[in-house]
Amino acid sequence: MIRLRGVKKCFRDGAREVPVLRGVDLDVAPGELVAIVGPSGSGKSTLLHVAGALDRDFEGEAVVAGTSLAGLGEAARAELRNRAIGFVFQAFNLLPTLSALENVMLPGVLRRAGPGGGIGEVRARARDALQRVGLGDRGGAPPARLSGGERQRVALARALLSRPAVLLADEPTGNLDASSGADVIRLFVELARDGVSVLVVTHEERVSDAATRVLHLLDGRLA
């Protein structure tokens, strides 16, 4: 689950402080697919980074997957991202020098080795994750040889490797054609049905149409 209370965030522009989030309250329960829409520059991505424990410089209260982000150190935030949060980006952000399978393995490789945490086990789980997004036979391909839709599904498989409680997606269908976008949206709906809290930032109606709730971010506030 995600719980934000009174979240404020400013960016510094020279000597001037520019407020981006002006007291955001948000709850995303397990099994919910919440879409946040809003114009460019409205702070949608910033909100996602706060909820994803990537941005620590904000005011307010944030609890993600049962963990309060207040006062959390770098290592603990990294551990939380690795264990409980999955990210999907508009630009896919796959590492171009790794194969699709190796990209999916990354969260597992970054986790301190424990029971079932060896490279071999991580590879097996990555194959399962690729299978789940329908790319079981494309694991050896580098991202450059995949279509946009396939790349986004690889990114989704990577986000799912650690079985996260929270999935955060930033314009996930922005670079996809209608068919590929529909595939990705269908996967989001399935994940929400499985109990994952899915928060999607988008300006596309096809995503908001699939969401259980749609919130508008305007002037740094949710409505």
Binding site: A78, N82, L95, P107, R111
Partner: peptide, 12 residues
């Protein structure tokens, strides 16, 4: 940055 998003700490 992507590695950090996926769970790498700055020390990693």
């Amino acid at each position: 940055a992507v590695l950090q998003a996926l769970g790498a700490a700055p020390a990693d």
